[in-house]
Amino acid sequence: MTDELRDRLARLDPMRSDVSVEPVDSPASRKLLESTMSTQVGERRATSMRRLVPAVAAVAVAVGVIGALALNGGGQPLVLNTGVEDPTASCIVFSVEELAKAPVAFEGTVVSSEDGVVTLDVDEWFRGGVSGQVILEAPEGMEALIGGIPFTAGDTYLITAYDGVVNYCGFSGPSTPELRAAFEAAFSG
């Protein structure tokens, strides 16, 4: 079955009109690939692992993860507590500088939200994680009070967390151009 929308989108493809790319066997490509293969895999890996271990340990302590914390990209999800919205609590005034202090920050799309458990597929990590999914869990008995954000399946959210608990007060919410710009600014350093 043909799909009209797909065909129409395909016509926007800037690479569709036989735009040439560098063939894999051209001299320039061979130079790049030879240079790549001359890189010492072991050395790079050892270096990155040395850097990774303390960083991961720091994050694990900082977020106080409830449940499984996966350290590989495709593994188990990071689990965070949604906390509960406390109307008496005072919020820190939102600023990019405050946002930048968050140890955990990501953009994710809700794939399910039920019984106080929200599962998000991570679109982008800004800080503090690598897993492909994050699960937000409401504290026991507080399933109806899943913070101040109505999580809707299919919608995209920007989330920060401190000590394993999602931070509200404007520091997490639906992904709007304004909030995303703030995240980009806060975590670009």
Binding site: R8, R11, L12, P14, M15, S17, A185
Partner: peptide, 21 residues
């Protein structure tokens, strides 16, 4: 930050232009 992060990727050659859509 602001300009780049909300802009769609730089329009590659002919993006949308050929189809005019």
């Amino acid at each position: 930050v602001e300009r780049l992060e909300r802009e769609p990727p730089p329009p590659p050659p002919g993006a949308g232009g050929e189809s005019g859509d």
